[in-house]
Each structure stands twice: as C-alpha cells, then as structure tokens.
Design a protein around this nucleic acid. Structure first.
Lengths: 171, 171
DNA sequence: TATAACATGTAACAAGTTACATGATTTC
DNA sequence: GAAATCATGTAACTTGTTACATGTTATA
C-alpha cells in the first residue's frame, strides 16, 4: 500500500506525530493524496503494532500528549523495499469519468456537450489549484509536476471529445 | 458509485445475468474497470434490493438457474441521474506510482533509473494491450481511446523524468 | 476423460470513511 | 468570549476482495 510508503518516507526525514503528518500531506501532496486524519491515525497504529515505527509520547502544555513516531530498522528496510517496488511497478490509474463517456450515446449530443463543458470547467479549476499549490523542495516536486502534466493531457483529450461531438466528421 | 452506473447502463441495453455482465466488462472494458465476479453479484443483489433492477429466473439445462436482471423505472431514472452527474463531474485520478517519485531523492540516480526503466517496460506492455483490445462499437470506444491517450501521456512524462535523471542540466 | 467454461453463492476479512466525542490553546 | 486550530480516539459502517464451495456442460 502506497500510503504506508508515504508515511514511512516522511518519518524517515524526521520523527512526526499524526496531526503533523496529516497536515504536511494536506499542504504539499493534496493534489495526489487525500489522507483523512482518522486514516492516518489508523495506519500509524497499525504500523506501530507491526514494528515498522516506534512511538514516544511528548507533552506540550495540557493538550493530549503527542504520539511522535520514528522509523525502526525494520521500518527502514520496509521503506526501501516498498520504494523499489513502487518505482519498478506500473499501476494503471482509475478514471471514474470514463464510465460516463461509455454511455454518451444514450443521450443527445447537445446535452452531452453541456455536461462535459461543466466537467471542463472543473478540470480547469483543478489545474489552477495545482499551479498555485505550495511546493515542497526536492523530488516531491515530481508529484505536482506529474499531476499538472496529467491534467493538461486530460484537458486536451476532453477538447477532442467536445470537438467530435460538435461536428462529427466536420473536420 | 460508477460501477452502479456501469451495470445499470449495460442492463439498459438488454437484460443480462451476472456472469454475462462480468464477461462483457472483462472483454470490452478491462482496460478501465476490474470488476470481480463476486462484486458483480454483490452489487446486483444490492440494486435488486433497492428496486433499481428486477430479477427473473431462467433455467438452462441443469445448471444453476440464471438470474436475469432488467432495469426498473426507478433504475432508469437512477441511471439518467448518475450519467448526468458523471459527465458533469471531474474526479481526479489517483496515481499510485507518484508516491515513489516523491522519494526519488532517497536513492542514487542510477538505481532509480533502472527501476523506472522497468516501470517503462510495463507501461509499454499496457499500451500494447490497450492497442490490441477488442472494441465495442459506439461510445464505449471512448473508454479505450481515453486509456490510450493517457498511457501515451504517461510514457512521455516518464521519459522526461528519465532524461532529467540521466543528465540533470545537461540539456 | 480431463479440463475449461458456465453459473452462482457465501463467510470472513481488509481498508478506509464517517460521524462522533473530548478537551486544550490560540486568535480575533 | 466565540471561533478556529491543535491533538487524539473510537465505534459503526461501506465497499469491495479473497478464498472457498457447488455442480453442469462443452471441448480437446
């Protein structure tokens, strides 16, 4: 699971507590990952139980004590393995929007175009968000850059479909 | 959920039983959807309980009776709503491969390149599969076409990354 | 006659989300 | 003093997968 790779990788740079990890991901990687707070705690618990990370408590004022995690040696080896496995693998992306396109011939071209124009608007919005997202230095930039490349390809593709709907065979 | 849209859309064309639906999806849409048999049965059960589809038994020989489903009127309305919602929406794709890239600076460029070359090989393989996949006429072609467009964009992107790793600033 | 394809079903599990609950501290 | 942010936690739920079990019929 890639989320494990992510958490392990972040903890490899420095020990962090759950809230902090969630915050970091939300800030720098939200274009790519949507990790809920509960899920972060859930995964950290599990990985601590598996011995991949170790926790230590840190009190600040009267707040709930922070549970600060750091990589164990087992965790480090696990990270190395996961990273290599991830880089050497290809996982097909899942496009939820494709299934609508599959049934495009169940409706009039005019309505389809109007609906897809709305999709286009959201796409452009997403692109703008990606452009203006804060960047973390280093190879984490690849994540945002890839997202941008993908969104641009998606936009071109969508415009092709729209053109075809507008005038089938008109070109 | 898009899988519901898919099943409803297929049942809209003609009544089918679970096995048949799974087979169709596997044949024509495997580039885009991986719907397990159990999951198909599971969803059909649920949608039947919700009144979106109705079932009738059909016996052929001594085999387990086929449970043939067809769209109800409620199901038809649901399909129309789901389709419009899908076409007008944009759902960011999730790229499992990004998280490896995020930690590229945790390893030597040489090893990273070797690993990414393996990823590239798998990508090219996936592209070949998409090229040679059987096509269903009509707008279902969009699904495969989109997949191909995406795979090509992915290949270009990967080659850019590889070039950058090969000679940072060499261009 | 063995194997693949046909056809369904289910119990147990895994992953993750939702919605809630708690309470301290900072900021306006 | 109200609202946002900090910080965690958990029980119930949803979604879907895995791994099995069952038996029939066509094909090599």
């Amino acid at each position: 699971m890639e989320r494990k790779l992510l958490l392990l990788g972040l903890l490899r740079r420095q020990k962090m507590h759950g809230y902090q990890l969630h915050e970091f991901i939300d800030r720098y990687l939200s274009t790519c990952v949507d990790l809920k707070k509960s899920t972060a705690y859930y995964l950290l618990d599990k990985m601590a139980a598996e011995g991949l990370i170790s926790e230590s408590e840190a009190q600040v004022g009267n707040r709930p004590p922070r549970r600060v995690y750091s990589l164990t040696e087992v965790g480090e080896r696990h990270f190395q393995a996961l990273l290599r496995q991830n880089l050497a693998g290809y996982w097909p992306a899942y496009f939820a929007g494709d299934l609508g396109l599959a049934f495009l011939d169940h409706m009039e071209a005019d309505e389809a175009m109007a609906l897809l124009q709305e999709r286009r608007r959201l796409l452009v919005q997403a692109l703008a968000r990606a452009e203006s997202a804060p960047q973390h230095p280093g190879s984490m930039q690849y994540v945002v850059a890839h997202q941008k490349a993908h969104l641009l390809a998606e936009l071109r593709w969508l415009d092709e479909v729209l053109a075809e709907l507008a005038g089938p065979g008109k070109s």
